[in-house]
């Protein structure tokens, strides 16, 4: 019944995409389930430079200390 309702709503609105579901959830619902919540991204508030080299050059020029987060895999990507 739920699937039929979604289909009828989609046809009425002319939005073919809205009828699509994957394993019982819409794309929007999957996005909510998978995408990190803002609280999970708090560490991105730090303006990380993406390489040790770029931070080193900047620290040398501005005479500031370096902070390096080094992991197996890039910490801003897949670790």
């Amino acid at each position: 019944m739920r699937a039929l309702s979604v289909l009828l709503l989609a046809l009425a609105s002319g939005d073919v995409s809205a009828a699509h579901e994957l394993h019982g959830h819409t794309l929007a619902e999957w996005r909510t389930l998978i995408e990190p919540a803002p609280a999970e991204l708090a560490w991105t508030e730090i303006p990380w430079r993406t390489s040790f080299w770029s931070a080193l050059s900047e620290a040398q020029a501005s005479e500031r200390p370096l902070l390096l987060w080094a992991m197996n895999g890039h910490p801003l990507g897949c670790t």
Binding site: I46, P65, L66, W69, P75
Partner: peptide
């Protein structure tokens, strides 16, 4: 975050380094 802002912060992959 405030402490980190006193540094020039970088993130990088460790194996190459």
């Amino acid at each position: 975050v405030k402490l980190a802002q006193q540094f020039v912060p970088a993130a990088d992959e460790v194996w190459r380094l």
